[in-house]
Design a protein around this nucleic acid. Sequence first.
DNA 1: ACCGGGATGGCCT
DNA 2: GGCCATCCCGGTT
Length: 213
Amino acid sequence: MIAAPDRTPLTREFFDRPVLEVAPDLLGRILVRTTQEGPIELRLTEVEAYDGQNDPGSHAYRGRTARNDVMFGPPGHVYVYFTYGMWHCMNLVCGPEGRASAVLLRAGEITEGAEFARKRRLSAQQDKELAKGPARLATALGVDRALDGTDACAPEGSPFTMLAGTPVGPDQVRNGPRTGVSGDGGVHPWRFWIVNDPTVSPYRAHTPRRRRT
DNA sequence: ACCGGGATGGCCT
DNA sequence: GGCCATCCCGGTT
């Protein structure tokens, strides 16, 4: 018997904890993204922690700006950024307020509303690729800067709702260096994923862009 | 598995 | 002014 996922929304207190506690605890939880067409549900399988303090990899490392403003606000809200001229990625702000820590949502399994996600991810060959990678995840869920600052501790029917889902035990969690983070040298093993999950994105070390010829 | 190209905003000098 | 970015994709080996 497999217990049905718990559809109780996560409270703000859940996010008002140190980011290294929250990040692994998010694995197996369910993000509901309610779009115009209908709800899409994503079971989180891979995340990364970013701490606003003494973390050169964090967008908040050099202080508060218009772009990262939401990270400095209350926990449980969504920080969306735009990168590489093409992509959006989404984070969940953690506590305490003002510390500017956040969890990057790197991958997940679409458990509901895949028909809506497929329309945004036409290049995906299989459903397990729909949200395999942070920009793919944001694309599948129709997330852009317009949703920056949205509360994820909101009732179902709101743009975002985090549900308790089915947390995974410590034996199912693995961790390692963060992906694509410059200036980190892999010193922070702050990437967390569910062992052997097919939706987890492959590890890529950071490679500096070469100038266009 | 491993490349290279794509594209633009943010932030530092 | 100029670098580089919490990356993806398609082609090739």
